[in-house]
Amino acid sequence: MKIEIKKDIYQEIHDLLHKARQNIISNINSTMTKTYFLIGKRIVEEEQDGNKRAEYGKKLIKTLSEKLTKEFGRGFSQRNLEQMRTFYLRYSISQTVSAEFKLSWSHYLILMRMEDIDARKFYEIEAIENNWSLRELKRQVNSSLYERLVLSKDKEKVKELSVKGQIIEKAQDVIKDPYILEFLGLDEKSDYSENKLETEIINKLEMFLLELGKGFTFVGRQVRFTFDEKHFRIDLVFYNRLLKCFVLIDLKIGEVTHQDLGQMQMYVNYYDRCIKLPDENDTIGIIICKDKNDTLVKLTLPKDNNQIFASRYTTILPSLDEFKKIIEE
């Protein structure tokens, strides 16, 4: 006799198995990464106890590679053993998070290339806390997330990034300038409309949420509200769970104007007075524009403004030098 399985019990068992598999994979990754660290440690110790000359180190790694490959198969090429050695040298100084090696070996291959220890620690913490895939880590590194956050903080707060990662406590903590939208596939010089920009963002919503940062959930596109028989539409509406507030986004393919800022102020006021619940925080409005005049923005908005922001965007992935130039301009 065939019985019908209730959906809830199936889902519970499904979730248990999925979590178990994830834990197994995580444990395997952690064990292998720690093993590679110890292999690197042993190679360095042998070089120091034996002969410090570079020739000895090369011969040591070559001999180890041949023997290990013969017994254990792929994964122990000279290049891989050199990376294990580098891994140990990069992480031999005790670090609170690093000592646990919670990421995969592939993640650490990216992290160990960073000369800036503070940046390396930041990306490691964020990758662990946000469960970044390898692709997501690469994207955040390539889009200079750490450098962009550093520019918006004072010296004391900058140091916190390498110890605690990104802390979201106020509106300014979620704002980036510029936003890097290279994943949209729009050429920097191509002619596209605001509707096209919006459509591409929706099509690549997962990547856009990654660029927005922690705590964002999507609410709607072209969200309409009406008062006094007049209709208005907000390009994109999100909610940030960490700040407990709505985040309204308008897209501008040109330079932001004082009219754009005034319109966003009206959107924010409407949400604060008519939409948000008593226990939710003030609404944030972000105009993501191709260009802006900082003086105009400051003069248009109140001195104590902490709700309305204008940030530039670029549809190309700049190099670090190009990125610094964008900021200076």
Rank of each mutant, 00 (worst) to 15 (best):
F87P: 00
L64I: 12
A54E: 14
N51W: 14
E47I: 06
F72L: 08
E66K: 15
K59W: 14
E46T: 10
G73L: 13
G75W: 07
T96I: 00
K59E: 14
A99K: 15
E66I: 09
E71W: 00
G50E: 05
I61V: 11
R42W: 05
Q83P: 00
K52L: 06
I39Y: 05
N51H: 11
T96L: 13
R85C: 01
T96N: 14
T86W: 03
E45H: 08
S77Y: 05
I61M: 10
G40D: 01
Y88K: 08
S94C: 11
I93Y: 02
E82M: 06
K67C: 05
G40E: 00
L68M: 05
S98P: 11
A54V: 12
A99M: 05
N51M: 10
K70A: 11
E47Q: 06
E71S: 13
K102Q: 10
R85F: 00
T63E: 04
T86C: 09
L68Y: 02
K70C: 08
V44K: 14
T86K: 14
A99F: 11
Y91R: 00
I39G: 03
L60A: 04
E55F: 04
G50T: 10
N80T: 12
T86G: 02
S104D: 08
E66W: 09
K58P: 07
G75D: 14
N51E: 15
R42V: 11
N51R: 06
Q48P: 02
K102D: 02
L64S: 02
E71R: 04
S65K: 02
D49F: 07
Y56V: 00
T86M: 09
I93W: 03
L64A: 11
T86D: 06
K59L: 12
A99G: 07
M84A: 06
K41C: 13
R74W: 07
S106A: 06
G73C: 08
Y91A: 01
R79N: 12
L60R: 09
R85I: 00
K67E: 14
S77N: 13
Y56T: 01
I39N: 10
E100I: 00
L64Y: 08
Q83H: 10
F101C: 07
G50D: 13
L64W: 09
E47A: 10
Y91V: 09
S92T: 08
G50Y: 03
T96Y: 03
